[in-house]
Design a protein around this nucleic acid. Structure first.
Length: 264
DNA sequence: GGAGATGTTTCAAG
DNA sequence: GCTTGAAACATCTC
């Protein structure tokens, strides 16, 4: 599920627990979400620490705790973060639970494609580094052009999904961006005109900022005019033309587009 | 029962 | 060494 704005929404859920102590940590240590992770260290260090700060970059989240403790979370395909009452009993898919006096912070992930990481140290973890965020000044025309050039033989849909170039963009956002920029998803990146590249960057920034504003705030629905509402529907139509959408697999992912808006 | 799902990593080939 | 594409990962839903 979660892309840029959904991740932002979930991150903020845990902010209810800011400044409060972690009384205890409960986790399903053998689950895949902890792969390669130091669950014992995580439990020992977080217990008794205070939750001080949270941030997100693309789909990655970082939660900071007193004493130089950092928790990294990725939601994968089906992860969510939420807050439950203090006496909450975790269920089957609630793989990590941080207990505070007044609440429990819960990470759930049925499909286990998400990931939990832990780092103990003064500075931010070594794995916390990322490409320029879409909303930043560094995500400029030169940066985008250079990234596209490096992937000139790949279909543009696949390139939009690369997190080290377009952090936070996932399957629905990529389709939304391509539809707005009127670019066919299978188009080889190197074959794009400069007008199309400009349109893509513009659409990327627009979809990101609007999604953050609407979905990121309270999980509201984007306007009816967005492609997202038609993408998976049987008989989904282009919001512009009311013509049926085309479906196919591009870059290994199901893709929906309008052949009238986005001709080859 | 089978296919597919809003993601990333790994591996092999070019 | 870099890019690309397919498979693998685990579970649920239609």
């Amino acid at each position: 599920m979660p892309e840029l704005a959904e991740v932002e929404f979930y991150r903020k859920q845990w902010d209810a627990g800011l400044r409060a102590k972690i009384l205890s940590v409960e986790l399903h240590a053998r689950k895949r979400v902890f792969r390669g992770g130091k669950t014992r260290e995580l439990r020992q260090h977080l217990t008794g620490s205070r939750f001080t700060e949270s941030s997100a970059r693309g789909k990655q989240m970082l939660f900071r705790f007193s004493g130089g403790n950092w928790l990294g979370l990725h939601l994968g395909m089906s992860g969510t973060l939420r807050v439950e009452p203090a006496e909450f009993r975790p269920e089957k898919h609630d793989h990590l639970l941080l207990r505070q006096v007044r609440r429990a912070l819960v990470f759930r992930d049925p499909r286990l494609f998400g990931r939990v990481r832990f780092h103990h140290g003064k500075a931010t973890p070594p794995w916390w580094s990322m490409a320029p965020e879409i909303s930043s000044a560094d995500f400029n025309a030169n940066y985008v052009a250079e990234f596209l050039r490096r992937h000139s033989r790949a279909p543009i849909k696949a390139v939009l999904l690369l997190q080290h170039g377009f952090p936070g963009v996932g399957n629905w956002m990529a389709d939304e961006i391509l539809w707005r920029a009127k670019v066919a998803p299978a188009k080889r990146t190197g074959a794009l005109t400069s007008t199309q590249v400009r349109a893509l960057r513009r659409a990327t920034r627009f979809v990101s900022s609007e999604a953050m504003r609407i979905i990121g705030r309270d999980f509201s629905d984007p306007p009816r005019s967005w492609l997202i509402h038609e993408r998976w529907k049987a008989g989904g139509i282009c919001p512009r033309h009311k013509t049926p959408l085309t479906r196919g697999t591009i870059g290994g992912r199901t893709t929906a587009w309008c052949t009238k808006c986005q001709p080859e």
